[in-house]
Simulated assay, not measured.
Amino acid sequence: MNRARAEKRGRRGETLAAWYLRLKGWRIVAQRVKTPRGEVDLVARRGRMIAFVEVKWRATAAELDLAIDEYRLRRVAAAAEAIAHRFVRTGDDQRIDVLLLAPGRFPRHITNAFMG
């Protein structure tokens, strides 16, 4: 698949993930936050919890099992650490979540995906 098409699908996945989180009571406070250490796809807040969310969109449900690994989670965690001061307030909890999406499948939301 060419890069432009992959980028378009990725953006679509992030939009769907944002709507899914909104339906679960989250407020999206930022999207596609880039840092020198990596990128955070979504930053969401629900009450005193801030979630830095990595979104993975794959063409098939079978591909989702390989969509996220320790290396990618470390990059998201490093990026989240770099931007946390912008979103986390005193008394807030924070975590790294992953949302896995594929056509025709209900989203799989992995909470606290990184325990580094």
Rank of each mutant, 00 (worst) to 15 (best):
T15G: 04
R74C: 12
F87P: 02
D92E: 05
R32W: 14
K8C: 00
W57M: 12
R72E: 06
P107F: 04
A44M: 08
L73W: 10
R46H: 13
K56Q: 06
A67G: 10
F52W: 04
K56F: 09
V98K: 01
L16A: 08
V55F: 07
L23Q: 14
A59I: 03
R22A: 13
A62Q: 15
L64G: 03
R3V: 13
D41G: 08
V40G: 05
G13T: 02
T90E: 15
G91N: 07
G91C: 04
G13Q: 02
R27D: 11
D41Y: 05
R86I: 02
L66Y: 08
D41V: 11
P107G: 10
V98F: 03
R58H: 05
I68V: 15
Y20N: 06
R58N: 11
F114V: 06
W19K: 13
V53N: 01
G104P: 05
L21P: 03
R12P: 00
V98S: 05
P107W: 01
V29P: 08
P36G: 07
R89T: 12
G116M: 10
M115H: 13
A59Y: 04
R46Q: 15
E14S: 08
V55C: 04
R3M: 11
W57P: 00
K34A: 14
A4Q: 11
P36F: 06
M115R: 15
G25H: 06
V88D: 09
A4C: 05
V29Q: 02
R75Y: 03
A6N: 12
A80H: 05
T35Q: 03
A113V: 09
V29L: 06
V43I: 15
V88W: 07
T15E: 13
F52S: 06
D41L: 02
N2M: 08
A82W: 04
R12F: 14
R58F: 10
V55M: 01
D92R: 05
R95D: 11
R105F: 05
I28K: 03
I96Y: 06
A4P: 00
T60Q: 06
G47A: 07
W19T: 14
A80F: 08
N112K: 08
D97V: 01
I50M: 09
